[in-house]
Design a binder for these strands. Structure first.
Length: 575
RNA sequence: GCGCCUGUAGCUCAGCUGGAUAGAGCAACGGUUUUCUAAACCGUGGGUCAGGAGUUCGAAUCUCUUCAGGCGCGCCA
């Protein structure tokens, strides 16, 4: 129906309005055919006359009086009204209204076909937390978000690949290995070093490694003797000493610790129903010392035209591409920077043939966007191919007070705890309940409660209620209806109109990468249903109407279920 | 100082690619169950959409500006 009306409107623009091609283009772009937000305004609404009146310098009324007869000549359209400042409200015939519902129910992309958005290959990189410890509740938000936009984009017909970038090279991992080593062989005096990882998982890993290097008491003492006072310098010195004195134990512990942590992250994400297509290891980019490695090749590419030497380091002229200042890509001591690895990683991603790559980053990285864009341009790619989506941290509350989180001390609320506590589905729901790039206050108390302020259950309850009615209906030995059979019965229209809008909500949430729009839609349709349920005695309704009512409920149920699934949430049959 | 984000009902927030009277939940008060799940529904009160200016037929939405709050600006990752 949407397509038919659109076609008529486009015809009208082409033939009936004396506009030049530029004006036509703006008109086509600005005019919108939308589902009316209230049935008083018909089923469909167009603002065409309002926009056109500006361009053609005519009254909206005059344009409407030419347009209305064209639309009314269609057999599916019952009447067309001019309303408000110049909107066109289109009322369909009963048959046409109900028909589009059957069509949309059978084809989840019924209204989406018209859009000529091409099918794209999209890569989403998200979570990508350093593998130095378990995921915490902050990471959970990025995980829920990245996965949800993946599901939504897939639904819109795109091909999506989910990727986790594993920073398995560099200092952080050395600190991890060092922390495990110190715990394993109990090489510390009274206090564990401030800059080491102190979480209990370090002890777990230390216990799990089977390794005995026969280290003596005096060796331990000399290892921790005369260390620098500064916390950061101290940990670096420890790392150096261990590497030199116990090279084999070091690499055993490093490898074991790393894969242990990565495996536990993977398990947590699996519980959270987030499955990656690819785990990309920073180490696979190779070493800077190896001229044939990917990282060397990528750096060579930008060094050729866009880099210079200063103070012993190699700098990328990122200011040429819009960055605030130039950036070091090779340090004075010859090691690469974080940016150099990221540069090579992005080159690798772009060369894999994705139309779009989406990076989901913590909001504290927003200063990094210009830098990486500049890097991409310096390598000769277009920054338009990359999109960065920022995810703000989530503050966790319990009974109104903030749950304390301190990563260094290792004393923090993990994602696993959250999932065990309120389940993956309620967690995902609340993570997605607000626009991703804004602060989120997440109250575990509410998420866990059965009270009426738990929006998650409010929506699930609508789904469960329909399931229950459906079961009762089947017990009456009546088959579930396959179509509407009472054309004149209109008590379900409001619910049905709302069900229709699902496809538009999904489209918009995909285009804007905003899953929270689906949450608010779900709330609205659930509310509409609960009202309906209270007003209509479904199973005792007139036999003539019961069929239509059940058909309506089936459609609403399927809309709720499929919307939930786009968020990675399983709809409940019973509560 | 520079950059990004935010400011909508008492509280938590929707709405922001301009559209018809600015919405919801919570909180407050008052109602609804011999009937399909009351984790529900109905009603009442509550707003200078931070302030100001501009663009427009039309602004919570776009532009500029002021104020208030948050975050980011390493040869860290």
């Amino acid at each position: 129906m949407y397509n038919q009306i659109s076609a008529s409107l486009n015809d009208f623009i082409d033939n009936e309005l004396s506009l030049d091609s530029v004006q036509k283009k703006t008109l086509l772009k600005k005019q919108k055919l939308t589902l009316s937000d209230s049935l008083k305004k018909g089923h469909w609404t167009s603002n065409l006359c309002l926009i056109a009146s500006n361009l053609a310098k005519k009254n909206p009324q005059d344009i409407a009086s030419a347009l209305i007869p064209v639309l009314e000549s269609k057999s599916e359209i019952a009447k067309v009204e001019l309303a408000g400042p110049g909107f066109i409200n289109i009322f369909l015939t009963r048959e046409a209204f109900l028909n589009q519902l059957d069509n949309a129910h059978n084809d989840p992309s019924y209204f989406l076909n018209s859009s000529n958005t091409s099918k794209e290959k999209i890569q989403i990189e998200f979570v990508s937390a350093n593998p130095t410890g378990p995921l915490h509740v902050g990471h959970g938000r990025g995980a829920a978000y990245g996965d949800a936009i993946g599901r939504i984009l897939e639904r819109l017909g795109h091909e999506v690949s989910r990727e986790y970038y594993v920073n398995d090279a560099g200092r952080q991992i050395d600190i991890l290995a060092c922390s495990i080593f110190l715990r394993k062989f109990e090489c510390f005096k009274n206090e564990f070093p401030e800059s080491a990882y102190k979480g209990s998982y370090i002890l777990e890993i230390a216990d799990a490694i089977e390794l005995d290097i026969g280290i003596t008491k005096s060796e331990k003492e000399s290892l921790i003797d005369n260390l620098p006072n500064d916390n950061e310098e101290r940990i670096d010195a420890l790392i150096e000493r261990i590497k030199i004195n116990y090279p084999e134990a070091w690499s055993t512990i490093r490898d074991f610790g790393l894969s242990y942590v990565i495996e536990s992250i993977r398990e947590d994400l699996t519980k959270f129903k987030v499955i990656f297509n690819n785990w990309f290891f920073e180490s696979s980019l190779g070493e800077l010392t190896d001229k044939k490695s990917e990282i060397s090749k990528a750096l060579a590419k930008v060094q050729k035209d866009h880099a210079y030497e200063k103070n012993g380091a190699i700098w990328l002229e990122s200011t040429k591409f819009g960055d605030d200042k130039d950036r070091v890509i090779i340090r004075e001591d010859g090691r690469g920077t974080y940016l150099s690895a990221d540069l090579a990683y992005h080159r690798n991603k772009l060369d894999r043939g994705f139309d779009t790559i989406i990076n989901v980053w913590g909001a504290d990285h927003h200063g990094y966007i210009k830098r990486i864009e500049a890097t991409i341009e310096a390598m000769g790619y277009s920054k338009k191919q990359m999109q960065v989506q920022l995810v703000q941290f989530a503050n966790l509350f319990e009974n109104g007070s903030k749950v304390k989180m301190s990563t260094r001390s290792g004393n923090f609320y993990t994602l696993k705890q959250l999932i065990d506590d309120i389940g993956p589905d309620a967690s995902r729901f609340y993570y997605l309940s607000k626009q991703a790039d804004q602060h989120l206050d997440f109250d575990i108390g509410i998420a866990r409660s059965n009270s009426k302020d738990n929006l998650y259950y409010y929506i699930q309850y609508a789904h469960a209620r329909i399931s229950s009615v459906e079961k009762k209906f089947l017990e009456l030995k009546q088959p579930l209806p396959k179509k509407f059979n009472d054309v004149d019965f209109d008590e379900c229209d409001e619910l049905l109109q709302m069900a229709l809008s699902a496809q538009f909500v999904i489209k918009s949430s995909g285009e804007n990468l905003q899953p929270h729009l689906i949450i608010y839609y779900l709330r609205d349709i659930a509310q509409n249903f609960h009202q309906f349920y209270n007003n209509v005695n479904i199973l005792n309704a007139d036999e003539k109407h019961k069929n239509n009512i059940m058909r309506t409920l089936m459609i609403v149920k399927s809309v709720i279920a499929s919307s939930f699934q786009l968020l990675g949430i399983e709809p409940l049959e019973n509560m």
